[in-house]
């Protein structure tokens, strides 16, 4: 069994984020990056399948040199090999450009299962996984919170609104986009990190994958117009007095606004 896990490297959750000069993204210089938290659950799920039997786990990511660290960490956690699309031409790709690149990797690898995080901590679009599934012609399920494998099938539980859970049988090969909390993610060991140096890490370009026209700002159908910090609102009023006075004052204001 071959499992492809798609990872994204995102700014560390504790990183201080400042908007860049042209206001279209954040300043990436000098901040720490980490593997997208949702993707770590996808990787852990793949490694558990590997631990339970015969499986090869391939991790793939797109981005500059710094992404090597994310892939080395994944290899250190137990993945078998990595594919790194390191091509300046990919800079500025939209979700579809990313999906086409990952789909091209998937077509080369022909995995039995593709695992991805439901969304990225920075983009929050949840767009890439279904796009990849469509491009490679695989059935897919998103917001996966539990899996149970059987021959030619994976039964998944999907998280729906309001705490409801949907149970779906997905025939393999398939793509699953996992929700956070699916499992307890392991830590990479120091020995694993050192052993990871000897594991294959293939570096590719968009042209190698035949998607040069689909990536980068030129290939993007969606462009980020503006990134900005939420503006501080005006007119907030803090009510004071005893509890009864505050409640009375609040009720009057609600009535004044015609909301009651």
């Amino acid at each position: 069994m071959k499992i492809l896990v798609c990872l994204k490297q995102v700014p560390h959750q504790d990183a201080r984020l400042d908007v860049n000069g042209d206001g279209t993204w954040i300043k990436e210089d000098g901040i720490k990056f980490e593997i997208n938290s949702y993707d770590t659950y996808a990787l852990e799920e793949a490694l558990r399948i590997k631990d339970a039997g015969e499986a090869e786990v391939v991790v793939a990511s797109i981005g500059p040199d710094r992404v090597t660290q994310a892939l080395r960490t994944a290899l250190g956690m137990g993945a078998d090999r990595a594919v790194h699309v390191n091509d300046a031409a990919c800079q500025g790709s939209d979700a579809l450009g990313i999906a086409k690149t990952l789909a091209a990797i998937a077509k080369e690898e022909s995995p039995d299962l593709i695992l991805m995080g439901l969304m990225s901590d920075d983009g929050n679009a949840s767009a890439v996984p279904p796009m990849v599934a469509e491009l490679v012609g695989m059935p897919s399920a998103t917001a996966v919170v539990a899996t149970e494998r059987s021959e030619g099938n994976i039964r998944v539980e999907r998280e729906l609104e309001g705490g409801a859970v949907e149970v779906v049988d997905v025939p393999t090969p398939c793509l699953l986009a996992v929700q956070s909390g699916l499992n307890q993610v392991r830590y990479a060991s120091l020995k694993g990190i050192m052993a990871a140096k000897k594991k294959p890490l293939d570096v590719k370009t968009a042209a190698d994958l035949g998607v040069a026209d689909a990536v980068g700002t030129a290939g993007a159908k969606v462009k980020i117009e503006k990134i900005y910090q939420p503006l501080r609102g005006e007119g907030a009023e803090i009510l004071s007095g005893s509890t009864d006075e505050i409640v009375s004052s609040l009720m009057n204001k609600i009535k004044e606004l015609g909301l009651l």
Binding site: G76, Y187, A188, I193, M194
Partner: peptide, 18 residues
């Protein structure tokens, strides 16, 4: 080197979590 810094990051991530 990169290896030493990656080992540091790995240990920091573990310790911050645990």
């Amino acid at each position: 080197d990169e290896d030493q810094e990656l080992l540091q990051t790995t240990v920091r991530d573990f310790l911050e979590g645990e």
